[in-house]
Simulated assay, not measured.
Amino acid sequence: MVFSHPVVFVLSTFLFISGLGGGALGLADPEPFDPTKVVQLSWKPRAFLYKVFLSEEECEHMIVLARDKLEKSMVADNDSGKSVMSEVRTSSGMFLEKHQDEIVGRIERRIAAWTFLPEENGEAMQILHYENGEKYEPHYDYFHDKNNQALGGHRIATVLMYLSNVIKGGETIFPNSQAKLSQEKDDSWSDCAKNGFAVKPEKGDALLFFSLHLDATTDPGSLHGSCPVIEGEKWSATKWIHVRSFGKPNKRSLGGECVDENELCSKWAALGECSKNPVYMLGSKDSRGFCRKSCNVC
Rank of each mutant, 00 (worst) to 15 (best):
L15R: 15
H61T: 06
I156R: 00
V279A: 14
D79V: 15
Q40W: 06
Q126G: 03
S190T: 05
C274R: 10
A216S: 14
Q183C: 06
F246S: 03
L15P: 00
N148R: 15
R244T: 05
F48R: 00
F53R: 02
N78E: 14
G122K: 02
C192S: 04
N165K: 09
G232A: 11
P6S: 09
V84Q: 12
C59G: 11
V64R: 15
V159I: 13
I107H: 03
H5M: 12
L160V: 01
S211F: 00
E71P: 01
P249R: 12
P32L: 12
D77G: 12
E273N: 07
G256F: 07
M281E: 11
E87I: 01
D29W: 09
S226A: 15
E137K: 02
F210R: 02
G255F: 11
M161E: 02
A28L: 14
E56Y: 08
T172L: 01
S284W: 07
M85T: 10
A269T: 08
S266I: 02
L223R: 04
G22E: 12
D141A: 10
K203D: 06
S294V: 10
R46S: 06
E57D: 15
E58V: 13
D79G: 09
G204T: 10
H139S: 10
P228Y: 00
N262F: 04
W43S: 13
D141R: 05
I111N: 01
K203F: 02
K98G: 03
D77E: 14
H5E: 15
K194E: 06
R244V: 01
S83M: 14
D79R: 14
G283T: 07
V39F: 13
T238V: 15
F210G: 01
S226Q: 12
I230V: 15
C265F: 09
D77V: 09
D34G: 09
G204A: 12
V2L: 11
E120G: 04
S83P: 05
L163C: 09
R155S: 04
S294A: 15
E261T: 10
G204Q: 07
Q183A: 11
C298P: 05
D145C: 15
S83G: 14
D68G: 07
K203R: 15
C192R: 00
L27T: 10
S182L: 12
A198C: 12
K234S: 09
E123I: 09
F174G: 00
N132Q: 14
S182D: 08
P45V: 06
S83K: 13
C258M: 07
K51E: 14
N132L: 15
Q149W: 02
N121S: 11
S266P: 00
R106T: 12
E31K: 11
G196F: 01
L212T: 06
L49G: 04
E119Y: 04
F174Q: 00
G196C: 11
A150I: 01
E119P: 02
K239G: 00
K194F: 06
Q100D: 05
K37W: 03
M281S: 07
F290K: 05
T36G: 05
L208N: 02
L271T: 04
V84E: 13
P6F: 06
L223C: 08
D101P: 07
L20I: 03
E123P: 08
S73W: 02
N176F: 13
S42T: 13
L41K: 04
A269M: 08
F9Y: 05
S86M: 10
I156M: 03
P138S: 04
V199L: 05
S86K: 05
S73F: 03
D79W: 10
K251D: 09
